[in-house]
Amino acid sequence: MKDLVLIGGGHSHAIALREFAMNPLPGIRITLISDVLQTPYSGMLPGYLAGFYTFEEAHIDLRPLANLAQAEFYCDRAIGLDLQQNQVFCANHPPIRFDILSIDIGSTPATLNVPGAATYAIPAKPVPQLLASWHKFQEKVLQSPQQSRSLATVGGGAGGVELTLSIQAHLNKLLAPKYRKNIEYHLFHRSSHILSSHSRYAARTLSQIMERRGIYLHLNQSVTRLEKQPSERLKLDCESGLTIECDEVFWVTQAAAPDWISGSGLSTDNRGFIQVNDHLQSISHSNIFASGDIATLLNNPRPKAGVFAVRQGKPLFENLCLILQEKPLISYHPQQQFLTLIGTGNGKAVASRGRFGLGPLRLIWTWKDWIDRRFMDQFNS
Rank of each mutant, 00 (worst) to 15 (best):
A117V: 01
N172H: 15
P115V: 06
L242M: 13
C321D: 10
K235G: 02
P123C: 03
Q312H: 11
A50R: 05
L151P: 00
D237H: 11
P24L: 08
Y201V: 09
H193W: 06
V307C: 03
L25K: 14
L68C: 04
F250E: 01
H11E: 07
R204C: 09
I371F: 11
S150F: 02
L206V: 09
G43C: 10
L297Y: 07
S102Y: 10
H93V: 02
K2E: 05
R213E: 15
F379P: 02
T340P: 03
D104N: 14
A152V: 08
L234V: 04
P46Y: 09
I79M: 14
P315T: 02
T108F: 15
L171S: 01
Y216K: 04
W134L: 13
V310W: 12
Y179K: 02
I261S: 05
R180M: 07
P46G: 10
H189Q: 13
D99L: 04
F188Q: 01
V310P: 00
T54R: 14
Q312Y: 13
E326K: 15
S264I: 03
A257K: 13
P258V: 05
G263N: 15
L187P: 04
I7Y: 06
G347I: 05
N299C: 01
A71V: 00
E72W: 15
K314S: 07
L206M: 15
F98N: 10
P360Q: 09
E227M: 08
I183H: 02
L341H: 04
L4P: 03
G27R: 12
S166F: 06
A117E: 05
P328C: 06
I30Q: 04
R233T: 11
M22P: 00
H279D: 10
I294Y: 14
L339I: 14
L226I: 08
R302G: 04
V141D: 07
R311P: 00
G47N: 08
G80Q: 02
A21Q: 10
V154E: 03
H198T: 00
P177M: 10
L112N: 08
K304W: 03
G343N: 09
A14T: 10
E227F: 11
Y74E: 07
I194C: 11
D278R: 15
V252D: 00
G313T: 07
W134Y: 15
P115N: 09
G359W: 03
I274E: 12
S199Q: 09
K181T: 11
R63W: 11
S166H: 05
L174Q: 13
Q146G: 15
N300F: 14
N300G: 02
L175N: 02
I371L: 14
P123F: 07
A132S: 08
N299F: 03
S331D: 15
P123D: 00
P301G: 03
C238F: 07
P177W: 05
